[in-house]
């Protein structure tokens, strides 16, 4: 197997009596697109939150580039090169599209409170670079026309794309995408799969939670299936499609 960029070991998290994620171990190989699928409430978003540091696991470990990052706070995880998008888009609604994407440069820039207050000359260059980088990414994703629009005024599909642009602006080595196709039409979904493939080709490893089966089967190199917090299957998409356990979970017992 390829060298794993990210691994989880026996990850566990419960809410009250609900075991949202239970004993989940898997690897994400460097440079791959790995999908996480599972019915509603399977624990996919919780798994992402555990990796990104939004939630702390009750047991188990998250390992990134061979180092444990379990329990790191989200900002520390981001600084290591893990970026994410959210199941329900979380833009900065009253900031412009450009400012949203510029926020993606936060971990790649330095100027602090004092430098900011005294407008230190070296911060100007940093600011210009931040802006140039953000504009370049907007152009790449075809969002240039929206540069100065207020984020909340964009149509839903565009907002998704801006969130993507913002995550890419961090220059991540691992990108976590939580249901990127939710709410998109067929045309937009196709564009999205092209985009994810393109991102992967630039060397960014992707971990994608997705409900859209055709998207998952088309783009992913490997699939993990969760059900009620458990990992019930893992493998290449073709094998997952034939896996009786997966079919049972998705289609009901009589099909198994």
């Amino acid at each position: 197997m390829d060298k794993a960029l990210l691994s989880t070991r026996n990850l566990h998290r419960s809410f009250g009596g609900v075991h949202a994620v239970k004993d989940v171990s898997f690897h994400v190989p460097t440079g791959a697109i790995k999908a996480v699928i599972g019915p509603n409430g399977a624990g996919k978003t919780t798994l992402f939150n555990l990796i990104a540091g939004t939630l702390t696991p009750h047991q188990g470990q998250v390992i990134f580039r061979g180092q444990p990052i379990t329990g790191h706070k989200p900002h520390a995880v981001a600084a290591l090169g893990i970026a994410r998008t959210f199941q329900t888009t979380k833009l900065f609604p009253h900031m412009t599209v450009l400012e949203n994407v510029m926020m993606g440069r936060h971990t790649r820039t330095r100027s602090g409170f004092l430098a900011g207050m005294f407008n230190a000359p070296w911060t100007w260059r940093e600011q210009r670079q931040t802006e140039a980088k953000a504009r370049a990414i907007l152009e790449e994703l075809g969002l240039t026309a929206h540069t100065n629009e207020t984020a909340c005024n964009l149509p839903f599909g565009r907002q998704r794309l801006v969130e993507f642009a913002r995550a890419l602006a961090t220059e991540p080595s691992l990108l976590l995408l939580d249901e990127p196709a939710a709410g998109l039409n067929i045309y937009e979904t196709q564009q999205l799969s092209q985009l994810i493939l393109k991102i992967r080709d630039t060397g960014i490893t992707c971990l994608v939670v997705e409900h859209d089966m055709s998207l998952v089967m088309n783009i992913s190199d490997e699939v993990v299936v969760l059900d009620q917090g458990h990992k019930i299957a893992e493998g290449p998409p073709a094998a997952i499609q034939r896996n009786p356990e997966v079919i049972r979970v998705y289609l009901g017992d009589e099909h198994a």
């Binding site: 990104a52 939004t54 706070k73 989200p74 900002h75 981001a78 600084a79 970026a83 994410r84 959210f86 979380k90 833009l91 900065f92 609604p93 009253h94 900031m95 400012e99 510029m102 926020m103 993606g104 936060h106 971990t107 820039t109 100027s111 602090g112 409170f113 430098a115 900011g116 207050m117 005294f118 407008n119 911060t123 940093e126 600011q127 931040t130 913002r166 961090t170």
Partner: peptide
């Protein structure tokens, strides 16, 4: 100066969506 700087942008982002700001590396 502060509000127009990197820090100012980060402060506004906290106001707008703290979870997103945190996930982008803002402490």
């Amino acid at each position: 100066n502060l509000v127009h700087s990197r820090v100012g942008r980060a402060l506004r982002s906290i106001h707008e969506n703290e979870e997103a700001a945190h996930s982008l590396g803002v402490n």
